[in-house]
């Protein structure tokens, strides 16, 4: 930790690494990059509660740890509750004078399964009770750690091991659960989507989410070469394509007000995003057209929400 920065145009990025080298994320993992950047945004005055999942497994093999910030993992589905206890605990200990007053960010980290499936209830409870915490969902769109099983965040048409494409199936037959919108529905002060292909945007959002008083949620698109079956050097491009096709738009919702951070006048065709990925390889033109139609619709809805709040 030397507190130095590297300058990228107007953006400064710390050289401090809060997740040490020697972690066991897969080769070319987009999530590992997203985590690295998010932790840079958070800095050292943080306590992280991590749900079971790729990040947990790849960073904490006893008797060693990758973490250079205080970190705790207990279970899969309870991260919302655990961070509630951490936040309430710190607050009351400071209030009672048992701990010096200081700013410690309480941050929960989980995957898409740990968030939009099994951890939803605990997270909803924590949002509703308005604890002061930031929740980071690293979304690699399936249960990757256990071997690419479908989750409610798996996109339509993707082949996974529990919703495989076959003679009678296209794989996932349901549309991806919109977790960011579910967070918005809890009327929390800050919700954002981010992608490591846009590192400064990601860093800014995580920083903002950490600084906001009350619950904040950042949904981070995390390309997975292993589960999505694309070459290990493509994480950044896949992320960019997801954003530029409108499949994963980058937006923020501050106190209920929507703002698109990247808005292309014309979206790229979804095919460009789907093609390089093995999980979509089986899709025929009809299905691709269906996905295109859905993306157009969802994107239009999002733009309408943004327009609602335009000055």
């Amino acid at each position: 930790m030397d507190g130095k920065f590297i300058k990228f145009g107007k953006n400064l990025v710390t050289t401090d690494e809060f997740v040490a080298e020697g972690h066991s994320f897969c080769v070319g993992c987009g999530e590992a990059l997203a985590l690295r950047l998010a932790c840079k945004a958070l800095g050292k005055d943080v306590i992280i509660a991590n749900a079971t999942g790729c990040i947990e497994i790849c960073t904490s093999p006893l008797p060693v740890t990758s973490w250079r910030v205080p970190w705790i993992h207990t279970l899969f589905e309870n991260t919302g509750a655990e961070i509630s206890g951490i936040e309430a605990g710190l607050k009351i200990l400071m209030k009672k004078g048992k701990m010096p007053e200081r700013d410690i960010k309480c941050v929960a980290v989980a995957g898409d399964g740990g968030t939009s499936d099994i951890g939803m209830q605990a997270l909803s409870g924590a949002f509703e009770r308005k604890h002061d915490f930031l929740y980071l969902c690293f979304d690699n769109e399936a249960y990757m750690n256990t071997g690419i099983q479908r989750s409610s965040a798996t996109p339509y048409g993707a082949s996974t091991t529990t919703a495989p494409a076959g003679k009678l199936s296209i794989g996932q037959t349901t549309w991806k659960k919109n977790m960011a919108e579910i967070a918005v529905a809890h009327d929390i002060p800050y919700v954002a989507t981010a992608c490591p292909s846009y590192p400064f945007d990601l860093i800014n959002k995580v920083k903002k989410g950490g600084e906001v008083k009350g619950p904040a949620y950042v949904h981070i698109f995390s390309p997975c070469p292993t589960g999505w079956r694309y070459p290990t050097d493509l994480a950044i491009e896949i992320g960019r394509l997801a954003v530029e096709t409108g499949i994963f738009p980058l937006y923020e919702v501050e106190n209920g007000r929507y703002k698109l951070n990247i808005d292309r006048p014309k979206l790229r065709p979804v095919e460009e995003y789907l093609k390089p990925q093995g999980r979509f390889r089986h899709l025929l033109d009809g299905e691709i057209a269906k996905i295109q139609e859905h993306v157009n619709e969802e994107y239009a809805k999002l733009k309408a929400k943004v327009a609602c709040f335009a000055a």
Binding site: G22, H23, T59, L62, P63, V64, T65
Partner: peptide, 20 residues
Amino acid sequence: RDMEVGNIVTEAGSAALRRT
């Protein structure tokens, strides 16, 4: 006997010793 209470790892970033 080398296990810390509660299996806590007290040496931050010690996984940096692992070659990947």
